[in-house]
Design a protein around this nucleic acid. Structure first.
Length: 418
DNA sequence: TCTGGGGTCCTAGGACCC
DNA sequence: TCTGGGGTCCTAGGACCC
Protein backbone atom coordinates (compact mmCIF):
# COMPACT_ATOMS: atom_id res chain seq x y z
CA UNK A 1 0.00 0.00 0.00
CA UNK A 2 1.09 3.55 -0.69
CA UNK A 3 2.49 5.48 2.29
CA UNK A 4 1.45 9.14 2.56
CA UNK A 5 1.85 12.23 4.76
CA UNK A 6 -1.04 13.21 7.00
CA UNK A 7 -2.10 16.06 9.24
CA UNK A 8 -4.75 15.37 11.91
CA UNK A 9 -7.08 17.93 13.46
CA UNK A 10 -8.63 17.00 16.82
CA UNK A 11 -11.67 18.99 17.93
CA UNK A 12 -13.51 18.48 21.25
CA UNK A 13 -17.28 18.16 20.76
CA UNK A 14 -19.16 20.98 22.58
CA UNK A 15 -16.00 21.45 24.62
CA UNK A 16 -17.13 23.64 27.52
CA UNK A 17 -20.32 21.68 28.07
CA UNK A 18 -18.66 18.26 27.76
CA UNK A 19 -15.96 19.24 30.22
CA UNK A 20 -18.46 20.56 32.74
CA UNK A 21 -20.48 17.36 32.38
CA UNK A 22 -17.42 15.17 32.93
CA UNK A 23 -16.30 17.15 35.97
CA UNK A 24 -19.76 16.83 37.55
CA UNK A 25 -19.92 13.09 36.91
CA UNK A 26 -16.50 12.74 38.53
CA UNK A 27 -17.80 14.60 41.57
CA UNK A 28 -20.52 12.02 41.98
CA UNK A 29 -23.37 13.79 40.23
CA UNK A 30 -25.85 11.34 38.70
CA UNK A 31 -27.10 13.27 35.68
CA UNK A 32 -24.91 13.67 32.65
CA UNK A 33 -25.42 17.25 31.45
CA UNK A 34 -24.95 16.06 27.88
CA UNK A 35 -28.19 14.09 28.09
CA UNK A 36 -30.44 16.93 29.27
CA UNK A 37 -31.13 20.45 27.93
CA UNK A 38 -28.15 22.30 29.38
CA UNK A 39 -25.66 24.99 28.43
CA UNK A 40 -22.62 26.94 29.51
CA UNK A 41 -23.44 30.62 29.53
CA UNK A 42 -22.00 33.96 30.46
CA UNK A 43 -22.73 35.33 33.90
CA UNK A 44 -26.54 35.50 34.05
CA UNK A 45 -26.27 38.38 36.52
CA UNK A 46 -24.67 40.52 33.86
CA UNK A 47 -26.88 41.86 31.13
CA UNK A 48 -26.68 40.16 27.77
CA UNK A 49 -24.91 37.02 28.89
CA UNK A 50 -24.69 34.61 25.98
CA UNK A 51 -24.63 30.84 25.38
CA UNK A 52 -21.05 29.59 25.00
CA UNK A 53 -21.88 25.92 24.48
CA UNK A 54 -25.06 23.83 24.53
CA UNK A 55 -25.91 20.15 24.90
CA UNK A 56 -27.45 18.17 22.03
CA UNK A 57 -30.92 18.08 23.66
CA UNK A 58 -30.70 21.87 24.13
CA UNK A 59 -29.65 22.36 20.51
CA UNK A 60 -32.59 20.25 19.40
CA UNK A 61 -34.89 22.67 21.20
CA UNK A 62 -33.36 25.61 19.34
CA UNK A 63 -30.64 26.78 21.73
CA UNK A 64 -27.67 28.08 19.78
CA UNK A 65 -24.13 29.17 20.52
CA UNK A 66 -23.81 32.96 20.89
CA UNK A 67 -27.52 33.30 21.60
CA UNK A 68 -28.55 35.81 24.27
CA UNK A 69 -29.48 33.99 27.49
CA UNK A 70 -33.06 35.18 27.71
CA UNK A 71 -33.70 34.10 24.12
CA UNK A 72 -32.37 30.68 24.96
CA UNK A 73 -34.81 30.49 27.88
CA UNK A 74 -37.65 31.42 25.53
CA UNK A 75 -36.72 28.44 23.32
CA UNK A 76 -36.17 26.17 26.25
CA UNK A 77 -37.63 27.25 29.63
CA UNK A 78 -36.15 24.33 31.60
CA UNK A 79 -32.63 24.94 30.29
CA UNK A 80 -29.95 24.40 32.93
CA UNK A 81 -27.22 27.03 32.54
CA UNK A 82 -23.79 26.86 34.20
CA UNK A 83 -21.09 29.53 34.32
CA UNK A 84 -17.81 28.89 32.50
CA UNK A 85 -14.89 27.50 34.49
CA UNK A 86 -11.74 28.36 32.57
CA UNK A 87 -9.42 26.60 34.98
CA UNK A 88 -11.28 23.35 34.40
CA UNK A 89 -11.01 23.88 30.63
CA UNK A 90 -7.27 24.41 30.88
CA UNK A 91 -6.85 21.17 32.80
CA UNK A 92 -8.98 19.19 30.34
CA UNK A 93 -7.14 20.75 27.44
CA UNK A 94 -3.73 19.89 28.86
CA UNK A 95 -4.81 16.32 29.61
CA UNK A 96 -5.85 15.93 25.99
CA UNK A 97 -2.62 17.43 24.68
CA UNK A 98 -0.52 15.03 26.72
CA UNK A 99 -2.35 12.08 25.17
CA UNK A 100 -1.89 13.57 21.70
CA UNK A 101 1.83 14.03 22.26
CA UNK A 102 2.18 10.26 22.58
CA UNK A 103 1.03 9.98 18.97
CA UNK A 104 3.22 12.69 17.45
CA UNK A 105 6.10 14.87 18.62
CA UNK A 106 4.61 17.75 16.65
CA UNK A 107 1.35 18.97 18.23
CA UNK A 108 0.01 22.50 17.76
CA UNK A 109 -2.54 23.74 20.27
CA UNK A 110 -4.76 25.82 18.05
CA UNK A 111 -7.30 26.79 20.68
CA UNK A 112 -8.39 25.39 24.07
CA UNK A 113 -10.26 22.58 22.38
CA UNK A 114 -8.43 22.07 19.08
CA UNK A 115 -5.07 20.62 18.11
CA UNK A 116 -3.20 19.86 14.91
CA UNK A 117 -0.95 16.81 14.78
CA UNK A 118 1.78 16.47 12.21
CA UNK A 119 1.95 12.73 11.48
CA UNK A 120 4.68 13.13 8.87
CA UNK A 121 7.44 11.73 11.06
CA UNK A 122 5.88 8.37 10.35
CA UNK A 123 4.94 6.84 7.09
CA UNK A 124 1.43 5.45 7.07
CA UNK A 125 -0.98 4.06 4.57
CA UNK A 126 -4.41 5.66 4.52
CA UNK A 127 -5.91 2.74 6.38
CA UNK A 128 -3.22 2.92 9.04
CA UNK A 129 -3.86 6.66 9.46
CA UNK A 130 -7.58 6.06 9.86
CA UNK A 131 -6.93 3.33 12.42
CA UNK A 132 -4.70 5.65 14.43
CA UNK A 133 -7.31 8.41 14.31
CA UNK A 134 -9.89 6.04 15.79
CA UNK A 135 -7.40 4.97 18.43
CA UNK A 136 -6.82 8.60 19.43
CA UNK A 137 -10.54 9.33 19.53
CA UNK A 138 -11.31 6.24 21.62
CA UNK A 139 -8.42 6.70 24.00
CA UNK A 140 -9.51 10.26 24.79
CA UNK A 141 -13.06 9.09 25.40
CA UNK A 142 -11.98 6.16 27.59
CA UNK A 143 -9.42 8.02 29.67
CA UNK A 144 -10.86 11.53 29.82
CA UNK A 145 -14.58 10.93 29.38
CA UNK A 146 -15.30 13.36 26.54
CA UNK A 147 -15.60 12.84 22.80
CA UNK A 148 -13.70 14.41 19.94
CA UNK A 149 -13.83 14.55 16.17
CA UNK A 150 -10.64 13.72 14.30
CA UNK A 151 -10.13 15.09 10.81
CA UNK A 152 -7.50 13.56 8.55
CA UNK A 153 -6.13 15.72 5.77
CA UNK A 154 -2.94 16.35 3.83
CA UNK A 155 -2.53 19.88 5.27
CA UNK A 156 -4.10 21.94 8.04
CA UNK A 157 -7.06 23.31 6.09
CA UNK A 158 -8.20 19.88 4.87
CA UNK A 159 -7.69 18.32 8.32
CA UNK A 160 -9.68 21.10 9.94
CA UNK A 161 -12.52 21.02 7.43
CA UNK A 162 -12.66 17.22 7.78
CA UNK A 163 -13.08 17.39 11.55
CA UNK A 164 -16.01 19.78 11.14
CA UNK A 165 -18.03 17.43 8.95
CA UNK A 166 -20.39 15.31 11.01
CA UNK A 167 -20.34 15.51 14.82
CA UNK A 168 -19.95 14.19 17.43
CA UNK A 169 -17.45 11.39 18.05
CA UNK A 170 -16.44 10.85 14.41
CA UNK A 171 -13.36 10.36 12.24
CA UNK A 172 -13.44 11.93 8.77
CA UNK A 173 -10.98 12.09 5.91
CA UNK A 174 -10.44 14.84 3.35
CA UNK A 175 -8.11 13.43 0.72
CA UNK A 176 -7.38 15.37 -2.49
CA UNK A 177 -9.95 13.49 -4.54
CA UNK A 178 -12.58 14.01 -1.81
CA UNK A 179 -12.48 17.84 -1.95
CA UNK A 180 -15.12 17.99 -4.62
CA UNK A 181 -17.59 15.63 -2.97
CA UNK A 182 -17.05 16.54 0.71
CA UNK A 183 -15.96 20.18 0.75
CA UNK A 184 -17.48 21.85 -2.29
CA UNK A 185 -21.17 21.22 -1.49
CA UNK A 186 -20.89 23.07 1.85
CA UNK A 187 -22.25 26.57 2.21
CA UNK A 188 -19.40 29.08 1.69
CA UNK A 189 -19.66 30.53 5.23
CA UNK A 190 -18.61 27.12 6.57
CA UNK A 191 -15.13 27.57 5.15
CA UNK A 192 -12.42 28.53 7.63
CA UNK A 193 -11.58 32.17 6.93
CA UNK A 194 -14.97 33.14 5.54
CA UNK A 195 -16.80 35.06 8.24
CA UNK A 196 -19.99 37.04 8.14
CA UNK A 197 -18.91 39.98 6.04
CA UNK A 198 -16.99 37.92 3.49
CA UNK A 199 -19.99 35.64 3.14
CA UNK A 200 -22.24 38.62 2.41
CA UNK A 201 -19.80 39.92 -0.22
CA UNK A 202 -19.42 36.47 -1.76
CA UNK A 203 -23.16 35.89 -1.93
CA UNK A 204 -23.50 39.24 -3.68
CA UNK A 205 -21.32 38.00 -6.54
CA UNK A 206 -23.19 34.72 -6.78
CA UNK A 207 -20.92 32.55 -4.65
CA UNK A 208 -23.09 30.31 -2.47
CA UNK A 209 -21.02 27.17 -1.87
CA UNK A 210 -17.36 26.45 -1.21
CA UNK A 211 -17.30 24.88 -4.69
CA UNK A 212 -18.50 28.17 -6.21
CA UNK A 213 -15.62 29.94 -4.45
CA UNK A 214 -13.10 27.30 -5.56
CA UNK A 215 -14.03 27.94 -9.18
CA UNK A 216 -14.55 31.71 -9.01
CA UNK A 217 -12.37 33.95 -11.17
CA UNK A 218 -9.29 35.02 -9.22
CA UNK A 219 -9.43 38.48 -10.83
CA UNK A 220 -12.87 39.15 -9.41
CA UNK A 221 -11.85 37.80 -5.99
CA UNK A 222 -8.72 39.95 -5.90
CA UNK A 223 -10.74 42.99 -6.91
CA UNK A 224 -13.21 42.38 -4.08
CA UNK A 225 -10.91 40.99 -1.36
CA UNK A 226 -7.37 42.09 -2.30
CA UNK A 227 -4.76 39.45 -1.43
CA UNK A 228 -7.24 37.70 0.85
CA UNK A 229 -9.17 36.64 -2.26
CA UNK A 230 -6.32 34.31 -3.17
CA UNK A 231 -6.18 32.93 0.36
CA UNK A 232 -9.84 31.90 0.54
CA UNK A 233 -9.85 30.58 -3.04
CA UNK A 234 -6.89 28.41 -2.09
CA UNK A 235 -8.66 27.19 1.06
CA UNK A 236 -11.71 26.29 -1.03
CA UNK A 237 -9.42 24.15 -3.19
CA UNK A 238 -7.73 22.55 -0.18
CA UNK A 239 -4.51 24.44 -0.87
CA UNK A 240 -2.56 25.55 2.20
CA UNK A 241 0.98 24.85 3.35
CA UNK A 242 1.67 26.29 6.80
CA UNK A 243 3.64 24.21 9.29
CA UNK A 244 2.25 22.55 12.38
CA UNK A 245 3.98 24.71 14.96
CA UNK A 246 5.05 22.87 18.05
CA UNK A 247 4.54 25.47 20.71
CA UNK A 248 2.31 25.50 23.71
CA UNK A 249 0.47 28.71 23.06
CA UNK A 250 1.67 31.39 25.35
CA UNK A 251 5.34 31.43 24.36
CA UNK A 252 4.72 34.04 21.75
CA UNK A 253 1.94 36.23 23.07
CA UNK A 254 1.57 39.36 20.97
CA UNK A 255 -0.90 41.30 23.08
CA UNK A 256 -2.72 41.18 26.41
CA UNK A 257 -6.09 42.81 26.89
CA UNK A 258 -9.20 42.82 29.01
CA UNK A 259 -12.57 44.31 28.25
CA UNK A 260 -15.97 44.34 29.85
CA UNK A 261 -19.58 45.14 29.16
CA UNK A 262 -20.63 47.40 31.99
CA UNK A 263 -23.79 46.64 33.96
CA UNK A 264 -25.30 49.98 32.93
CA UNK A 265 -24.56 52.49 30.20
CA UNK A 266 -21.84 54.82 31.44
CA UNK A 267 -22.34 58.53 30.90
CA UNK A 268 -20.00 59.97 33.54
CA UNK A 269 -16.24 60.19 32.97
CA UNK A 270 -15.53 59.23 36.59
CA UNK A 271 -17.41 55.96 36.17
CA UNK A 272 -15.51 55.21 32.99
CA UNK A 273 -12.22 55.95 34.78
CA UNK A 274 -13.02 53.39 37.48
CA UNK A 275 -13.76 50.69 34.93
CA UNK A 276 -10.64 51.58 32.96
CA UNK A 277 -8.47 51.45 36.08
CA UNK A 278 -9.79 48.04 37.02
CA UNK A 279 -9.15 46.78 33.49
CA UNK A 280 -5.67 48.28 33.57
CA UNK A 281 -5.00 46.53 36.90
CA UNK A 282 -5.88 43.19 35.32
CA UNK A 283 -3.88 43.81 32.16
CA UNK A 284 -0.79 45.14 33.96
CA UNK A 285 -0.86 42.27 36.41
CA UNK A 286 -1.01 39.72 33.58
CA UNK A 287 1.77 41.62 31.81
CA UNK A 288 4.03 41.37 34.86
CA UNK A 289 3.23 37.72 35.41
CA UNK A 290 4.46 37.06 31.87
CA UNK A 291 7.65 38.98 32.61
CA UNK A 292 6.92 41.49 29.88
CA UNK A 293 7.17 45.23 29.46
CA UNK A 294 4.85 46.99 27.03
CA UNK A 295 5.41 49.78 24.55
CA UNK A 296 1.92 50.17 23.10
CA UNK A 297 -1.31 50.89 24.96
CA UNK A 298 -4.75 50.92 23.38
CA UNK A 299 -8.23 51.75 24.62
CA UNK A 300 -11.49 50.84 22.95
CA UNK A 301 -15.08 51.95 23.46
CA UNK A 302 -18.29 50.36 22.30
CA UNK A 303 -21.14 52.80 22.58
CA UNK A 304 -24.68 51.86 23.53
CA UNK A 305 -25.45 52.58 19.87
CA UNK A 306 -23.00 49.70 19.13
CA UNK A 307 -20.51 51.96 17.34
CA UNK A 308 -16.94 50.94 18.06
CA UNK A 309 -13.85 53.18 18.28
CA UNK A 310 -10.29 52.77 19.51
CA UNK A 311 -7.11 54.74 20.08
CA UNK A 312 -3.60 53.52 20.70
CA UNK A 313 -0.36 55.20 21.67
CA UNK A 314 3.23 54.14 21.45
CA UNK A 315 5.25 54.87 24.61
CA UNK A 316 8.74 56.36 24.73
CA UNK A 317 9.77 53.82 27.38
CA UNK A 318 8.73 50.26 28.01
CA UNK A 319 6.82 49.76 31.24
CA UNK A 320 4.90 47.22 33.33
CA UNK A 321 3.67 49.74 35.90
CA UNK A 322 -0.08 49.92 36.41
CA UNK A 323 -0.25 53.64 37.02
CA UNK A 324 2.06 54.52 34.13
CA UNK A 325 -0.14 52.49 31.82
CA UNK A 326 -3.29 53.90 33.38
CA UNK A 327 -2.15 57.48 32.83
CA UNK A 328 -1.97 56.76 29.08
CA UNK A 329 -5.27 54.88 29.19
CA UNK A 330 -6.99 57.88 30.70
CA UNK A 331 -5.50 60.28 28.15
CA UNK A 332 -6.48 58.02 25.28
CA UNK A 333 -9.99 57.71 26.65
CA UNK A 334 -10.34 61.47 27.00
CA UNK A 335 -9.23 61.94 23.37
CA UNK A 336 -11.59 59.25 22.22
CA UNK A 337 -14.85 59.71 24.07
CA UNK A 338 -17.57 61.70 22.32
CA UNK A 339 -19.82 61.79 25.44
CA UNK A 340 -22.18 59.17 24.05
CA UNK A 341 -23.41 56.50 26.48
CA UNK A 342 -20.82 53.73 26.81
CA UNK A 343 -21.69 50.04 26.84
CA UNK A 344 -18.29 48.38 26.77
CA UNK A 345 -14.69 49.37 27.55
CA UNK A 346 -11.41 47.65 26.74
CA UNK A 347 -7.71 48.06 27.53
CA UNK A 348 -4.99 46.22 25.62
CA UNK A 349 -1.19 46.31 25.63
CA UNK A 350 1.23 45.01 23.00
CA UNK A 351 4.76 45.45 21.58
CA UNK A 352 6.44 43.52 24.35
CA UNK A 353 9.99 43.35 25.58
CA UNK A 354 11.38 41.06 28.22
CA UNK A 355 11.66 42.75 31.64
CA UNK A 356 14.97 41.00 32.28
CA UNK A 357 16.89 43.79 30.61
CA UNK A 358 14.74 46.64 31.89
CA UNK A 359 16.27 50.03 31.20
CA UNK A 360 15.68 52.58 33.92
CA UNK A 361 14.47 55.88 32.63
CA UNK A 362 16.33 58.87 34.02
CA UNK A 363 12.96 60.58 34.35
CA UNK A 364 11.57 57.98 36.73
CA UNK A 365 13.48 58.31 39.96
CA UNK A 366 10.85 56.49 42.00
CA UNK A 367 10.56 53.62 39.58
CA UNK A 368 12.38 51.15 41.77
CA UNK A 369 10.07 51.82 44.68
CA UNK A 370 7.01 51.46 42.46
CA UNK A 371 8.21 48.22 40.94
CA UNK A 372 8.79 46.75 44.39
CA UNK A 373 5.34 47.82 45.54
CA UNK A 374 3.63 46.32 42.52
CA UNK A 375 5.43 43.03 42.88
CA UNK A 376 4.30 42.83 46.50
CA UNK A 377 0.73 43.53 45.42
CA UNK A 378 0.97 40.83 42.74
CA UNK A 379 2.30 38.34 45.27
CA UNK A 380 -0.52 39.06 47.72
CA UNK A 381 -3.08 38.69 44.97
CA UNK A 382 -1.63 35.35 43.94
CA UNK A 383 -1.60 34.15 47.53
CA UNK A 384 -4.94 35.43 48.78
CA UNK A 385 -6.95 36.07 45.63
CA UNK A 386 -7.31 39.04 43.39
CA UNK A 387 -9.65 40.97 45.67
CA UNK A 388 -7.36 41.11 48.67
CA UNK A 389 -6.11 44.57 47.84
CA UNK A 390 -8.30 47.26 46.41
CA UNK A 391 -7.38 50.74 45.35
CA UNK A 392 -9.10 53.24 47.62
CA UNK A 393 -11.14 54.64 44.75
CA UNK A 394 -13.02 51.38 44.34
CA UNK A 395 -14.33 51.15 47.87
CA UNK A 396 -18.10 51.50 47.84
CA UNK A 397 -17.90 52.50 44.17
CA UNK A 398 -20.03 49.60 42.96
CA UNK A 399 -17.27 48.49 40.61
CA UNK A 400 -15.00 45.53 40.98
CA UNK A 401 -11.34 46.40 41.42
CA UNK A 402 -10.20 43.84 38.92
CA UNK A 403 -12.36 43.18 35.92
CA UNK A 404 -12.24 41.35 32.65
CA UNK A 405 -13.52 37.93 31.71
CA UNK A 406 -10.74 35.41 31.96
CA UNK A 407 -8.39 36.47 34.71
CA UNK A 408 -5.11 34.69 34.77
CA UNK A 409 -5.28 32.50 31.72
CA UNK A 410 -1.95 31.40 30.37
CA UNK A 411 -3.65 30.11 27.33
CA UNK A 412 -4.22 32.70 24.62
CA UNK A 413 -3.42 31.04 21.35
CA UNK A 414 -6.64 31.60 19.47
CA UNK A 415 -5.70 32.84 16.10
CA UNK A 416 -7.57 33.60 12.94
CA UNK A 417 -4.98 32.25 10.53
CA UNK A 418 -3.53 28.79 10.14
C1' DT B 1 -28.49 37.55 14.62
C1' DC B 2 -25.57 42.50 16.34
C1' DT B 3 -24.65 39.55 21.54
C1' DG B 4 -19.46 38.36 25.08
C1' DG B 5 -14.51 38.34 25.85
C1' DG B 6 -9.88 37.02 24.39
C1' DG B 7 -7.02 37.15 20.66
C1' DT B 8 -4.32 37.71 15.47
C1' DC B 9 -3.58 39.68 11.02
C1' DC B 10 -4.15 43.01 7.26
C1' DT B 11 -4.70 47.50 5.03
C1' DA B 12 -5.02 52.36 4.19
C1' DG B 13 -3.67 56.93 4.99
C1' DG B 14 -0.75 60.35 7.13
C1' DA B 15 3.77 61.86 8.81
C1' DC B 16 8.34 61.92 8.07
C1' DC B 17 12.80 60.67 6.09
C1' DC B 18 16.13 60.84 2.22
C1' DT C 1 9.71 77.03 -3.68
C1' DC C 2 7.29 72.85 -4.76
C1' DT C 3 8.09 69.29 -7.62
C1' DG C 4 9.28 63.36 -7.63
C1' DG C 5 9.62 58.79 -5.78
C1' DG C 6 10.71 55.37 -2.41
C1' DG C 7 10.75 53.75 2.14
C1' DT C 8 9.39 53.21 7.06
C1' DC C 9 6.80 54.13 11.12
C1' DC C 10 2.48 55.07 13.33
C1' DT C 11 -2.47 54.86 13.98
C1' DA C 12 -7.39 53.54 13.15
C1' DG C 13 -10.34 50.31 11.79
C1' DG C 14 -12.01 46.04 9.75
C1' DA C 15 -12.17 41.05 9.40
C1' DC C 16 -11.53 36.68 11.23
C1' DC C 17 -11.02 32.87 14.82
C1' DC C 18 -12.80 30.22 19.15
Amino acid sequence: MKKEKFIFHVDVNSAFLSWEAVARLQHGEKTDLRTIPSAIGGDPVKRSGIILAASKPAKKLGVRTAQVLHEAFLQCPNLKVFPPDYHLYMRCSEAMVSILRTYSPLVQKFSVDECFLDMNDFSYTRQEAIDIAYKIKNQIEDQLGFTVNVGIGYNKITAKMASELEKPNKVHTMFPEEIESKLWPLEVGELFGVGHSSKVKLNAIGVETIGDLANMSIDILKYKFKSYGQVIKNYANGIESSEVRNFSGYEKIKSIGNSTTIKFDVTEADDAYKVLLSLTEMVASRLRSEGFLTQLVSVSIRYASLGHVSHQRKLFHYTDQTMQIYKIVEELFNDLWNKEAIRHLGVRVSKFHSNVSYQYSIFDEDIDKHRKLESVVDALRIKYGKNILTRAGFLHSGFSAMSGGVSDEKYTDMISSL
